[in-house]
């Protein structure tokens, strides 16, 4: 049974008036730690991780079966299969978790409560971003790591460098999509709207922009450099091109646009990809921070 005191008798501490509020780093880490633990305890984290590992294994075995199951060319196909899987799953995972983060906290009244403490809005957004980024990294590492281990155990030769590249690039893609998700979350009033918008954006990035690019190329007879330039606008395309380049050192499989990129930029094309993905991380996150500083948390 609860023992209820009849009155609170403590008095304010004089030192409270002269205490210094905690610094940016401490608050960011506090919020990030909280967010990471919350994400790891949630069902979505384990669901995504498990789905990712199972789908990764399925894709790998199917790809490897087509080449007799061994050899680096086999793994080239396996990696291509994994790249396509990452293209579908990781953006969805990052966009929806980012979109839900701030909007659902606002809806539950949690955001206002946290912001009523000695913490700034910048610290809250950064902390949430870092925490979710940590959860996504854990999810990707577990998913791809499990996949690589089982492939190795089954005797399929895998290149650790390829897996590491794929994990690193997947994380960059996840960070870009997380930034976009958080921007959506700051803009939306309700969590359901935020998540719905995130799913629409995912659909647009995965399917619609590809279709639009193909249609545009045919209808408008776009020049090859314009086509390549436009494909850099979609972070998913950037990830795909960079991954293929990292694993294969060429972009031949992309056809004329890939050949144009390699002819024009050579290996420096990787810098172009990196700049595009980093811009996709920084710009939406910066916009989210700027908007969050102005918008009401209630």
């Amino acid at each position: 049974m609860t023992s209820l005191p009849t009155a609170v008798t403590s008095s304010p501490n004089a030192s409270a008036a002269v205490r210094v509020p905690p610094g940016l780093l401490r608050n960011v880490l506090t919020v990030a730690h909280r967010e990471l633990r919350d994400a790891i305890r949630s069902r979505w984290f384990w669901l995504y991780t498990l789905s990712f590992a199972i789908l990764g294994l399925a894709v790998s075995f199917v790809s490897a079966a087509g080449t007799g199951g061994t050899g680096l060319s086999g793994f080239g196909r396996t990696t291509a299969g994994l790249i396509n899987l990452v293209l579908l799953v990781v953006p969805l995972m990052a966009l929806t978790s980012g979109a839900a983060s701030i909007a659902s906290d606002r809806e539950r009244g949690m955001l206002a409560y946290v912001l009523a403490q000695p913490v700034s809005r910048l610290e809250v957004v950064l902390g949430k971003y870092l925490g979710l980024a940590g959860a996504l990294l854990a999810c990707l590492s577990l998913g791809l790591g499990t996949c690589a281990l089982i492939l190795a155990w089954k005797g399929l030769r895998t290149s650790p460098a390829s897996i590491l590249w794929l994990t690193g690039l997947s994380l960059l893609l996840a960070l870009a999509m997380l930034s976009l998700g958080m921007l959506i979350s700051v803009l939306a009033r309700r969590a359901s709207v935020a998540v719905g918008t995130a799913i629409f954006v995912w659909l647009a990035l995965v399917f619609l922009t590809d279709l639009a690019l193909m249609a545009g190329a045919l209808a408008l007879r776009l020049r090859i450099e314009t086509l390549f330039g436009l494909s850099l606008v979609n972070p998913l395309q950037v990830f795909k091109m960079w991954s293929l380049h990292a694993v294969d050192a060429t972009l031949d499989v992309l056809g004329p646009a890939g050949l144009y990129a390699m002819d024009t930029f050579g290996d420096r094309v990787a810098i172009l990809f990196a700049a595009a993905l980093v811009a996709w991380i920084i710009l939406p996150l910066g916009a989210a921070m700027a908007l969050f500083a102005r918008r009401s948390p209630v």
């Binding site: 909280r34 919350d38 539950r108 009244g109 949690m110 403490q117 700034s120």
Partner: peptide, 20 residues
Amino acid sequence: GKAARLLIGYVPQELGFYDD
């Protein structure tokens, strides 16, 4: 704001916080 809120203890109408 941070320095001002350091001096404040706030109780809302209903505690909305991480339930878990």
